[in-house]
Design a binder for these strands. Sequence first.
DNA 1: TTGACAACATACCCGGTAGTATGTTCATCA
DNA 2: TGATGAACATACTACCGGGTATGTTGTCAA
Lengths: 213, 213
Amino acid sequence: MALSVGEYASDGSRADILEAAARCFTERGYYATSIDDVARSLGATKGRIYHHYPSKADLFADVFRVGMDMNHAAIESARALPGKALDRWKKLAFTHVVQMIVTRSFQKVVWEGTEMYLRGATTPEQRSAFAELHKSRSRYGDIFRQTIAEAKREGDMHFSNLSIANQLMFVTLNSPIFWYSPQPGETRDDIDDIAWQVVAFAARGLGVNGGDF
Amino acid sequence: MALSVGEYASDGSRADILEAAARCFTERGYYATSIDDVARSLGATKGRIYHHYPSKADLFADVFRVGMDMNHAAIESARALPGKALDRWKKLAFTHVVQMIVTRSFQKVVWEGTEMYLRGATTPEQRSAFAELHKSRSRYGDIFRQTIAEAKREGDMHFSNLSIANQLMFVTLNSPIFWYSPQPGETRDDIDDIAWQVVAFAARGLGVNGGDF
DNA sequence: TTGACAACATACCCGGTAGTATGTTCATCA
DNA sequence: TGATGAACATACTACCGGGTATGTTGTCAA
């Protein structure tokens, strides 16, 4: 079950800042977003943000952290589901895609933060904080990776190279952060329908037989 | 057949600048890349770059343009191939993926440029130049979109929503720009093998029967 | 030989932005 | 009720980076 941002902020006042920051970073990216932009979108000034966060990078990292925490929490119940790995994967994948859609801002920050870390675009001080976040993201990714490896051993998936298959799966499941935009009058069922199409594409891509479910 | 960057630069001297700019923009992104960075990676100074390009945005746009021109040229021979749409798509998709791998720097700029245009992060002056580039990219995308639509009519593909399927296909075929990195001692065959795995994933995702080819 | 221009390098300006130092207001509690 | 500190706003500084203005060097043509 998805929780609100407030549940992951260290206090209530930070929640608003986090959401505003997530929106700004998503729309313009890290470097093109100024602290004044975030403050303006809150109807406030820099003072408010610097009172809660020591630097722009720390604010960004906190959005990253909350995004990952929400992801871990969302798949918690599906992680240890008994039965076939394929069924567990379907549940995990669907939950993940819905999460990409409904918490899109935070997930784009997770994406950008990961890219920043991987290309080493961080100062030494921030590097350790980013390393921790990246480990959290790796643990999350490994859950999926191990699940599809198991599903392959059980004969329910057919792909040749695990690493490549894993990359293709993730890029597919993550892709709504790039192309999804909320439509007026859209219901939860509409989102579920989109999510299933994404999961179906990934499932077939991974070599699941009769992938239309 | 892929041509070198020099073929697309308006003169020889610009080619080096374009390649250096593509590398820098790819590694750090548009905003985090300074003109001095590009100049330094050339062993030169700003003067050289501003002698050939009026602004940073124009340089970026030219990298974008060259990237798209290379893509159009690469699929030229496969565009009007006779026979089934599915076979045409396989050729197009494979060519595209190889292109993403071997011209990775330029393609990441195309990606970022498209995102910048779509979220309107451009000044009014640049907007018209970017609009032209975006149209070029749309024409390119439509070739694939029409091909999979035709393949579906011919009963060789099975997906529910064309727009979503198209997005998922493209994000899959483009994904090497995010996760591929050249390995020491890698041959053209190795790259072809990776490309086929990507195409196979996309083909199965689009509902091609017996997608292992 | 010289003048003219391309192809740069150097030196400088200036706006924007991260970060800081210093108010100001309000609630809480001894 | 006065003192204290949290939660901000305001005012300021320092620096970085895009862009420009001005040298400098080599080449080539007349």
